[in-house]
Write a protein that binds this DNA or RNA. Sequence first.
DNA 1: TAGTCAATGAAATTAAAATTTCAGTAGAGT
DNA 2: ACTCTACTGAAATTTTAATTTCATTGACTA
Lengths: 286, 286
Amino acid sequence: MTHKKHITLESIIAKHYDALPTAERKLADTVLEFPGELAAYTATELAEIAGVSKAAATRFFKRLGFNHFEEARRLARDSKNWGSPLYLQSKDEQPQSADQRIAHYLDEEQQNLRKTYHSATLSELDVICEQLVKAKRVWLLGFRNSHYIASYARWQFIQFRSDVHLLPANAGETMAEYIADLRPDDMVIVIGVRRRVDPLINIMQAIKQTKAPILYLTDPTAGKTSAYARWTIKIPVSSSFLFDSYTALMSFTRLLAIETFRVSGESGRKHLKNIERIHDTLNEFE
Amino acid sequence: MTHKKHITLESIIAKHYDALPTAERKLADTVLEFPGELAAYTATELAEIAGVSKAAATRFFKRLGFNHFEEARRLARDSKNWGSPLYLQSKDEQPQSADQRIAHYLDEEQQNLRKTYHSATLSELDVICEQLVKAKRVWLLGFRNSHYIASYARWQFIQFRSDVHLLPANAGETMAEYIADLRPDDMVIVIGVRRRVDPLINIMQAIKQTKAPILYLTDPTAGKTSAYARWTIKIPVSSSFLFDSYTALMSFTRLLAIETFRVSGESGRKHLKNIERIHDTLNEFE
DNA sequence: TAGTCAATGAAATTAAAATTTCAGTAGAGT
DNA sequence: ACTCTACTGAAATTTTAATTTCATTGACTA
């Protein structure tokens, strides 16, 4: 095993600690109190916190063996991000080992999740959920990949409210009949991540004309389609691997269900209880 | 509205995100990629990473409402120490604000993902993927919730290999016929997260007798069922919210597909190309 | 007591980062 | 084709941080 040990700022300080003069020892103590946080502070701030002069700070890092403060800051910062492979290698080259690939994959997944839940559009969530409770009937629509998500979303909603339906996934005649039947007090959740099929835009337009409000779950590449939706939520699906990742989308539909359930209050809770009972009964016979 | 909101850099960015011009959006993406780490970088470095000019960086932070970059850096540094909401409040009390609930939710999702990919069982991944490539036919089986995952997983696999089938989700006669047809050079992926249905164990037993190897994707509550599987991978689904979370499970099936594709090499690549072509053609007419 | 020497911080200097200016450009509207 | 307008990055400028200088201190030694 020839790998060079992972040098940390802490270990370097420890090595010199005994030989440090008073002012610099104060600095050392200060730095050690903010483990890994050094990079977030300037040398001047550090000096202030430690109650010593700026000159002392400069000398301190020189004595530790750095050429200048910037080097120490780099070390502190980089030894922290050591774990995240996403930034270690340039984005286009393939990770070598399975471990690396998996770490990279995990990283991307987490990032998509974070982006999803930091999105500003979530401020509308309350209103959307209320609408989902108020709506007489809820319709879910999704083609292709989006269809899988739509059907799973439906399953979640029928846990606590009735009249939640999946619109048929075949374009054409049948779809038109369903749309004709939509009413303003219905609500439609359209799931349309890329690759979107061409007729989606027409269908959404048709739905809009029925005055049934549309919640449109899509990805950041959505174009004009969102014009027909009352609410549009963009969920990142991009991935440097094969296929887009619907992980965040799945996650979000569940959040939507959870929040809607919360808003629905008593009536939803009752429904859920019923379902639970039915499940238990089914289990005995299945 | 009097509740004090926990303002984070992320939430501020999210609020402005849609209105940002290209260069500044690149910066936004870059910042979001370094959660909480902003304080460790200078505006210049940020601009370099994002591939935009320093001027853009200055404008970016001004647009977000800061007086200067230093303010943003301060916020990032200080709000980092707020820590993750998961540990801030005791588990049983409900988070108050929607923001908090969402943060908590995100935290759980990420944790499930991390647990999934840090699991030791992943060492078998190579072997599993090879088997998935070698297998004459691949069968996917899942009841109830697991059925949604199974059907999505199938869709991913048919992108690059043929003969991938969904076993019917209705217990009873039909299932028996399919199982009787299984051969040792087939492979079966059983998805069985709770609540598992009773007959699953019998079905898995029956499959085992056909000598077709079983990859069993389940959750940590799996009991004796795993006895019949050649490989068992436990994926956490637990959640303090309503319903279990299949986010990590979805994510994992995609990884499985990706890695299998990688192993399959040329033949898979060819198949994928065909599919791409067919998709494009379909798009024109749909 | 005088002499040496490391240590120290205030202030001067230098280096670097952030901001502003400005000229060029792309896009929307007429 | 022509305006407007908003966006952009290179370069100039300003601001801020880091380093160096230097005079002073105090501790130790002869």
